[in-house]
Simulated scan of single mutants.
Amino acid sequence: MDLTNPSFKQLFDQLGLASDHQAIDRFIEEHKGLDSTLKLQQAPFWNPTQAKFIEDSLNEDAAWAELIDQLNNRLR
């Protein structure tokens, strides 16, 4: 997977989620309003593998980190 400029589609693919535009919008709409005291990776809708991927990507400032931050903002 080319991660030069990863996209939301690629992030959702990596998380094992449906990744078409409508599915991404639906996921965000369904999970919007995430408690501001929770870290994104602690959200109850992630499975352990997804949560670990998010946590590791943020800790390592990986290519995914910026998109994960954007997703975090959209879910708040």
Results as ranks from 00 to 15, higher is better:
residue 34 L to M: 12
residue 14 Q to N: 05
residue 32 K to Y: 11
residue 66 E to R: 05
residue 7 S to P: 04
residue 72 N to W: 02
residue 58 L to H: 02
residue 46 W to P: 07
residue 49 T to D: 12
residue 72 N to V: 02
residue 43 A to H: 02
residue 43 A to Y: 03
residue 54 I to P: 01
residue 30 E to H: 12
residue 17 L to G: 10
residue 8 F to P: 07
residue 61 D to P: 03
residue 19 S to W: 12
residue 11 L to H: 11
residue 51 A to T: 07
residue 52 K to M: 09
residue 1 M to F: 07
residue 48 P to H: 04
residue 71 L to Y: 00
residue 76 R to A: 09
residue 14 Q to L: 08
residue 58 L to G: 00
residue 72 N to P: 02
residue 43 A to E: 05
residue 50 Q to V: 05
residue 3 L to S: 06
residue 50 Q to T: 08
residue 8 F to M: 15
residue 69 D to S: 06
residue 54 I to N: 00
residue 51 A to K: 05
residue 5 N to H: 15
residue 36 S to A: 13
residue 45 F to G: 10
residue 12 F to K: 09
residue 16 G to P: 06
residue 64 W to L: 02
residue 7 S to Y: 12
residue 48 P to Y: 03
residue 62 A to R: 08
residue 40 L to R: 03
residue 1 M to E: 09
residue 61 D to M: 09
residue 53 F to D: 02
residue 9 K to N: 08
residue 62 A to E: 04
residue 7 S to H: 03
residue 53 F to T: 01
residue 64 W to N: 00
residue 61 D to V: 11
residue 33 G to F: 06
residue 59 N to W: 01
residue 27 F to P: 08
residue 62 A to V: 00
residue 7 S to E: 14
residue 27 F to E: 08
residue 18 A to T: 12
residue 73 N to R: 13
residue 1 M to R: 07
residue 12 F to R: 11
residue 8 F to R: 07
residue 58 L to T: 00
residue 28 I to E: 11
residue 35 D to S: 14
residue 7 S to G: 06
residue 34 L to D: 07
residue 16 G to S: 04
residue 41 Q to W: 14
